[in-house]
């Protein structure tokens, strides 16, 4: 772990990407605020160099005057306030995570805000774990909503879920080719399609690359989803649609982002570790990942880069 000598030097080193674990039921704004506040607290606790002196010329003007060096009270943190305040930091996220979602969240601090912009436009695929429950449908498609329907779910088996999920994936694969921005019948399209999954040209319409049921214990089930351009509410509706196609009803009980590009849960910093030394350490690890994988930020082709 890096040794930090003074606050000013540490502040200059704080430029880059951090990968944090966003807990559920906390907004991204709150996460940003907590991290920045903790950074300020830790930076202010570091030694900050000696207090400045000021030169004063005193005495009557019609006689020889004396020059003396006195401590500058205006430089005292008690008078001018703490050295670092929240406004000194810029902070932005690469892709948004909703209030109820948890998981990997990439934040750019100071110069790192440029990196988050590049990561956002590079449209990194994200992997989600989607927890759902059969037998109940709600008006928001999530556990917090009002129940609108209850139904039997005894007939649902693992095989049936797998079949429906495979069908949903196939339907989305067609959409992936349509959203690539290339004509379907062209040679370019063929060349692209040979190489593998394609990134969408548009940033608005969600594209799903893979859906898989990883856990089934009636009535609870877990789906693993790889997607681009998705958002919280869209994932909830997926679970609702799955329920309808299974001839029952379902609602979502949790959304967890487990991977974004190369950044998986192993990199993510837990809430109790949102402190200066861990953040600097995490920033270095993230920088290494970005250096090793140039195509994460500046992809050269429309093929999905992981």
């Amino acid at each position: 772990m890096a040794k930090l000598c003074t606050g000013a030097l540490a502040y200059k080193a704080l430029n880059g990407l951090v990968c944090v674990y966003k807990p559920p039921c906390v907004t991204i704004k709150q996460v940003q605020h907590t991290i920045i506040t903790h950074l300020c607290r830790d930076l202010n606790a570091l030694p900050n160099g000696p207090q400045e002196k000021r030169v004063e010329i005193i005495g009557a003007t019609n006689e020889p005057m004396s020059v003396c060096l006195v401590p500058n009270y205006a430089d005292n943190p008690l008078a001018c306030g703490p050295r670092f305040i929240n406004e000194d930091f810029r902070c932005s996220w690469a892709t948004h995570l909703g209030f109820f979602s948890s998981g990997v969240l990439l934040l750019g601090i100071n110069e790192g805000t440029k990196l988050t912009y590049l990561l956002n436009t590079a449209r990194l695929p994200r992997a989600y774990k989607l927890h759902g429950q059969l037998g109940k449908a709600t008006d928001t498609y999530f556990w917090n909503g009002k129940t609108v329907e209850r139904s039997m779910h005894k007939h649902v088996s693992r095989e049936k879920i797998d079949r429906v999920v495979a069908h949903m994936q196939a339907a989305h694969q067609k959409a992936m080719y349509e959203l690539s921005g290339v004509h379907m019948d062209s040679q370019t399209m063929y060349d692209l399609a040979v190489e593998g999954p394609i990134r969408p040209a548009n940033s608005k319409i969600p594209v799903l690359y893979g859906i898989k049921c990883v856990h089934f214990d009636s009535p609870n089930f877990t789906l693993e989803i790889h997607a681009v351009n998705e958002y919280e509410k869209y994932l909830w509706t997926l679970v609702h649609d799955l329920g309808v196609q299974l001839k029952t009803s379902a609602h979502c009980t949790g959304v967890q982002c487990i991977r974004q590009g190369k950044f998986d849960l192993e990199y993510a910093l837990l809430r109790k570790h949102w402190k200066l030394e861990y953040i600097v350490d995490n920033m270095n690890r993230c920088r290494k990942v970005l250096e090793e994988n140039e195509n994460l930020m500046r992809p050269i082709s429309a093929v999905l880069s992981i």
């Binding site: 003007t61 019609n62 006689e63 205006a74 008078a79």
Partner: peptide, 30 residues
């Protein structure tokens, strides 16, 4: 004449640090 009591006028400020070198009271508080 002795002009040592002639000093620039203190303008409006956003914080007290601007006044602290001129005011003994604030210095004592610090």
């Amino acid at each position: 004449k002795d002009l040592s009591d002639v000093t620039p006028f203190l303008s409006n400020t956003f914080n007290l640090a601007a006044y602290v070198n001129h005011s003994k009271t604030l210095q004592n508080l610090i």
